[in-house]
Design a protein around this nucleic acid. Sequence first.
DNA 1: TGCTTCATGTAGATTGTCAACAGGAAGGAT
DNA 2: ATCCTTCCTGTTGACAATCTACATGAAGCA
Lengths: 112, 112
Amino acid sequence: MSRTDVLQGTLDLMVLKTLDAAGEMHGYGIAQHIQMISHDALALNQGTLYPALLRLEQRGWIQSKWGKSQNNRRARFYSLTRVGRRQLATETRNWERVAGIMQRLLDAPGQA
Amino acid sequence: MSRTDVLQGTLDLMVLKTLDAAGEMHGYGIAQHIQMISHDALALNQGTLYPALLRLEQRGWIQSKWGKSQNNRRARFYSLTRVGRRQLATETRNWERVAGIMQRLLDAPGQA
DNA sequence: TGCTTCATGTAGATTGTCAACAGGAAGGAT
DNA sequence: ATCCTTCCTGTTGACAATCTACATGAAGCA
């Protein structure tokens, strides 16, 4: 796992939250947003991003339509569905639970 | 992903940190420790745990030897190697980095 | 005309986890 | 003696998510 890899399982949450926070966006923009938020620590591969968007749409969490980007390019714009919003809440809680567990575990002092 | 699933990629760190915090342990004990720390929120499958221990040993992060458990059972005891300790430090930093990014992302308010 | 950026995708391999199966040995209960 | 439960270690086959690499096309500028 290279330094810029996405932690498995967090991508869905990142995408959902990005759409929640920034509203309708195209895939390329979502990737940029995540990269920006992470101060370039994370870079999404296209081979990860686009299949993920398909997956999320098939599960009914996001919906899409074709449109024009700010740069006048053909782009597919995604937005959260009602179900996606619920999913976001669920995954957020789940993340916080896991993060809490990890925190508790990592806080323990090491052996002398 | 069921409620008790381990977030992919975190298992190695959990195992390494467990051995760091609790010292030499056998696989079954590691699983119990993690389950305890998580207040039973996480339960490791054997089908996940044992291959993971093999993997970590093959990478030189842990070492093992046969012995007797407290219950007088035959058990394989694992401990951190020097390299494993370095790996633990690396993965800890990486986890904190990811957790920080997620925090920053999730803190953003949603759309009206 | 050619180059770069924006933007979307696909294919194949790899990896980690899961569910299910399997078994042996210790210790207590009947 | 026998049975049952707990402890403890594994293996197998399937699945899902990610990675790397490849591929395409249009906009806009030099």
